[in-house]
Computed example of a mutant assay.
Amino acid sequence: MGKVKVENIRAYAHHGCLKEETAIGSEYRVDVSVDADISKAAVSDKLSDTVDYVLINHIVKEEMKTPSKLLEHVGHRIIKRIFNEIPIVTAAAVWVSKINPPIGGDVEKVTVVLEEKRIL
Protein backbone atom coordinates (compact mmCIF):
# COMPACT_ATOMS: atom_id res chain seq x y z
CA MET A 1 0.00 0.00 0.00
CA GLY A 2 1.14 3.57 -0.56
CA LYS A 3 0.01 7.18 -0.84
CA VAL A 4 0.07 9.67 -3.67
CA LYS A 5 -0.36 13.33 -2.75
CA VAL A 6 -1.02 16.31 -5.00
CA GLU A 7 -0.70 19.48 -2.98
CA ASN A 8 -1.48 23.14 -3.43
CA ILE A 9 -3.57 22.90 -6.60
CA ARG A 10 -4.63 26.51 -7.15
CA ALA A 11 -7.84 27.52 -8.88
CA TYR A 12 -10.01 30.59 -9.30
CA ALA A 13 -13.64 29.53 -8.87
CA HIS A 14 -17.16 30.73 -8.09
CA HIS A 15 -18.29 28.78 -5.01
CA GLY A 16 -20.27 30.18 -2.12
CA CYS A 17 -23.67 30.88 -0.63
CA LEU A 18 -23.51 34.63 -1.21
CA LYS A 19 -24.55 36.02 -4.58
CA GLU A 20 -21.37 38.11 -4.69
CA GLU A 21 -19.18 35.02 -4.22
CA THR A 22 -20.64 33.25 -7.21
CA ALA A 23 -20.52 36.41 -9.35
CA ILE A 24 -17.02 37.62 -8.47
CA GLY A 25 -15.30 34.36 -7.54
CA SER A 26 -12.20 33.89 -5.43
CA GLU A 27 -8.96 31.96 -5.01
CA TYR A 28 -8.98 28.35 -3.82
CA ARG A 29 -6.41 25.76 -2.86
CA VAL A 30 -7.03 22.01 -3.09
CA ASP A 31 -4.88 19.21 -1.67
CA VAL A 32 -5.49 15.54 -2.45
CA SER A 33 -4.12 12.37 -0.86
CA VAL A 34 -5.03 8.91 -2.13
CA ASP A 35 -4.23 5.42 -0.88
CA ALA A 36 -3.49 2.72 -3.43
CA ASP A 37 -1.40 -0.39 -3.91
CA ILE A 38 1.51 1.12 -5.82
CA SER A 39 3.96 -1.71 -5.14
CA LYS A 40 3.64 -3.02 -8.72
CA ALA A 41 4.68 0.39 -10.09
CA ALA A 42 7.70 0.45 -7.78
CA VAL A 43 8.99 -2.62 -9.62
CA SER A 44 7.63 -2.12 -13.16
CA ASP A 45 8.34 1.62 -13.52
CA LYS A 46 5.11 1.91 -15.57
CA LEU A 47 2.62 4.75 -15.24
CA SER A 48 -0.22 2.31 -15.90
CA ASP A 49 0.60 0.55 -12.60
CA THR A 50 0.24 3.61 -10.38
CA VAL A 51 -1.93 6.64 -9.68
CA ASP A 52 -1.56 9.28 -12.38
CA TYR A 53 -1.22 12.56 -10.50
CA VAL A 54 -1.75 14.48 -13.74
CA LEU A 55 -5.25 12.97 -13.84
CA ILE A 56 -5.87 13.98 -10.22
CA ASN A 57 -4.91 17.57 -11.06
CA HIS A 58 -7.20 17.48 -14.11
CA ILE A 59 -10.15 16.17 -12.05
CA VAL A 60 -9.69 18.90 -9.44
CA LYS A 61 -9.44 21.66 -12.05
CA GLU A 62 -12.60 20.45 -13.83
CA GLU A 63 -14.65 20.08 -10.66
CA MET A 64 -13.57 23.50 -9.41
CA LYS A 65 -15.12 25.02 -12.57
CA THR A 66 -18.62 23.87 -11.54
CA PRO A 67 -20.04 26.33 -8.97
CA SER A 68 -21.33 24.95 -5.67
CA LYS A 69 -22.69 26.65 -2.60
CA LEU A 70 -20.60 24.50 -0.25
CA LEU A 71 -16.97 23.41 -0.30
CA GLU A 72 -18.18 20.05 1.02
CA HIS A 73 -20.08 19.50 -2.22
CA VAL A 74 -17.02 20.29 -4.35
CA GLY A 75 -14.82 17.95 -2.29
CA HIS A 76 -17.35 15.14 -2.53
CA ARG A 77 -17.51 15.49 -6.31
CA ILE A 78 -13.71 15.36 -6.54
CA ILE A 79 -13.55 12.16 -4.48
CA LYS A 80 -16.31 10.47 -6.49
CA ARG A 81 -14.49 11.27 -9.76
CA ILE A 82 -11.22 9.91 -8.36
CA PHE A 83 -12.92 6.64 -7.41
CA ASN A 84 -14.65 6.43 -10.82
CA GLU A 85 -11.57 7.19 -12.89
CA ILE A 86 -8.72 5.62 -10.92
CA PRO A 87 -9.69 2.03 -10.00
CA ILE A 88 -6.66 1.25 -7.82
CA VAL A 89 -7.48 4.05 -5.33
CA THR A 90 -8.87 2.54 -2.11
CA ALA A 91 -9.25 5.73 -0.07
CA ALA A 92 -9.09 9.45 -0.73
CA ALA A 93 -8.85 12.64 1.29
CA VAL A 94 -9.46 16.11 -0.14
CA TRP A 95 -8.81 19.49 1.47
CA VAL A 96 -10.67 22.37 -0.23
CA SER A 97 -9.62 25.82 1.01
CA LYS A 98 -11.13 29.20 0.23
CA ILE A 99 -8.44 31.88 0.42
CA ASN A 100 -9.43 35.17 2.12
CA PRO A 101 -13.06 34.16 2.77
CA PRO A 102 -15.62 36.97 3.15
CA ILE A 103 -16.39 36.36 6.82
CA GLY A 104 -15.78 39.80 8.26
CA GLY A 105 -12.38 39.11 9.79
CA ASP A 106 -8.70 38.73 9.03
CA VAL A 107 -8.74 35.04 8.08
CA GLU A 108 -6.20 33.50 5.71
CA LYS A 109 -8.43 30.62 4.61
CA VAL A 110 -11.19 28.23 5.56
CA THR A 111 -10.76 24.55 4.77
CA VAL A 112 -13.12 21.62 4.49
CA VAL A 113 -11.62 18.12 4.73
CA LEU A 114 -13.38 15.06 3.35
CA GLU A 115 -12.11 11.49 3.67
CA GLU A 116 -13.76 8.49 2.07
CA LYS A 117 -12.97 4.84 1.50
CA ARG A 118 -14.01 3.01 -1.63
CA ILE A 119 -17.18 1.01 -1.06
CA LEU A 120 -16.61 -2.51 -2.32
Rank of each mutant, 00 (worst) to 15 (best):
E72N: 10
P102F: 10
Y12F: 15
V60I: 10
Y28R: 02
E27R: 13
E21Y: 12
S97H: 08
L47I: 15
E72F: 04
V107L: 15
E72I: 07
V96S: 05
E20V: 12
A42K: 08
L55K: 15
L18S: 09
K98D: 03
L18Y: 14
M64F: 10
A13C: 05
P67F: 05
H58I: 00
E108P: 00
I9L: 04
N84R: 13
T22K: 15
V113N: 04
I88W: 00
H73I: 12
V54D: 12
N57G: 11
E85S: 02
R81P: 08
I56C: 06
E62K: 15
L114G: 08
A13G: 01
V110S: 09
I86L: 14
I82G: 01
F83H: 11
V74K: 03
T111N: 11
K117Q: 13
A23E: 15
V110G: 04
H58Y: 12
A36M: 08
R29P: 00
V60S: 09
H15A: 07
T66F: 05
V74L: 06
R10C: 00
D49N: 11
D106G: 00
Y53S: 05
I78M: 08
Y53N: 10
I99K: 03
I38A: 12
S44Q: 03
D31M: 04
T111Q: 12
R118Y: 06
M1I: 07
P67G: 08
G25E: 09
I24N: 10
E115V: 05
I99S: 06
R10T: 11
H14I: 04
A41W: 02
I103S: 10
E115S: 14
